[in-house]
């Protein structure tokens, strides 16, 4: 049986249901991510796991023990808040040591453990600083250290990086992942940034409107979206409706056809290869190592990515081309 299991979790606020029939299983030491747009219920699920909200129905179990109605104090689940939530009246050491003090550890042990974790999150020298004397990244590391030092059974991180600038973010996410691996911590990480989810997670739960749309290993969710929503949210998939795919490719499908931009090959207009489509370049966008073309074919505009190797590769608007799409690269999604 999995370490953390959630069964049929529902949450209703007044008249609207925010989490529907949420199910998941996480193994010990796993790093999973909740990924989804703003307002989809990620924080609400996290708060139910931590014990700050009571589920309307459903069960949460850790190591076989039902904790659905346990008080937050007894759960042993650490939480890092998006807004840090450092206690402003305590310095770094006192903030980090607070949980140990609540557990009535003796002061020598507190000092030892706090010193250890301060080294771990690289905050040496800041021990006596107050939260308002720290930068955003430093505050977030204090928050992380405060949650880590009590050795929680599960660590919850609610968009811990979203208030930070891009560079610190990259740094800190590697640090978090590194610490998590070293301590073997079971971790749930919440984000609405797909890149963050892809780089950090063992597994991703893509959420939409209070439900899990798809779960799976990071690379799977990206390459094999199960629904139109996931395809849109995860990458810049070309999504063709039933009528378009019939007209363009002669395929009759239910739902949508998802084609990734880099899987469409561009051939020159005189190519004699079979199964190609005629197209006209309408626009291009330079994305560093990639050039993204908008190519019109039979009234449908497709996005096509090509590597940006030399400047002479660039095809101006109006160029006639032929497009080749392998059957294996087309995914039918709900």
């Amino acid at each position: 049986m999995a370490y953390l299991t959630i069964n049929n979790l529902h949450k209703r606020f007044a008249d609207h249901v925010v989490v529907h029939d949420f199910n998941m299983n996480i193994e010990q030491g796993e790093f999973v991510t909740f990924l989804g747009p703003s307002g989809c219920g990620k924080t609400t699920v996290l708060r139910m796991i931590a014990g700050f909200e009571t589920p309307t129905s459903g069960h949460i179990r850790v190591g076989g023990e039902d904790i659905t109605h346990q008080s937050p104090q007894k759960r042993g689940i650490g939480m890092v808040f998006q807004s840090y939530a450092l206690f402003p009246n305590m310095n770094v050491t006192q903030n980090i040591g607070f949980g140990l003090k609540m557990r009535k550890c003796d002061s020598a042990e507190i000092a030892r453990k706090v010193a250890e974790v301060i080294k771990l999150v690289e905050l040496s020298g800041k021990e006596n600083h107050y939260p308002h004397e720290l930068s955003g990244g430093q505050r977030q590391r204090v928050a992380l250290a405060r949650a880590l030092v009590v050795e929680p059974r599960i660590l919850l991180l609610d968009e811990p990086l979203s208030a930070l600038d891009a560079r610190i973010r990259k740094n800190l996410r590697e640090q978090i992942r590194d610490i998590q691996r070293r301590l073997g911590l079971t971790t749930i990480f919440v984000t609405h940034d797909q890149e963050e989810a892809l780089t950090m997670s063992d597994r991703i739960f893509v959420m939409n409107q209070g439900r899990v749309e798809q779960e799976g290993r990071a690379e799977m969710v990206y390459t094999e979206p199960a629904t139109e929503f996931v395809a849109r949210f995860m990458g810049n998939y070309n999504l063709l409706g039933a009528a378009d795919s019939q007209r363009l490719l002669g395929l009759s499908i239910n739902g949508h056809l998802a084609i990734r931009p880099e899987s469409i090959h561009v051939l020159d207009a005189h190519s004699q290869q079979a199964d190609t489509l005629a197209g006209t370049i309408r626009q291009h966008q330079l994305l560093g190592n990639i050039i993204r073309y908008q190519i019109e074919s039979a009234g449908v505009t497709l996005q096509v990515d090509r590597l940006n190797r030399t400047a002479s590769d660039l095809m101006p608007a109006g160029t006639e081309v032929r497009l080749q799409i392998s059957r294996d690269d087309m995914r039918e999604v709900r």
Partner: peptide, 23 residues
């Protein structure tokens, strides 16, 4: 007084009394 302070305190094992007294 921010709600997260109380929640952070609870998740670290602090009782309601501890919240009032220490924070």
């Amino acid at each position: 007084l921010r709600a997260e302070w109380r929640e952070a305190c609870e998740s670290l094992g602090g009782s309601s009394l501890a919240y009032w007294w220490h924070i």
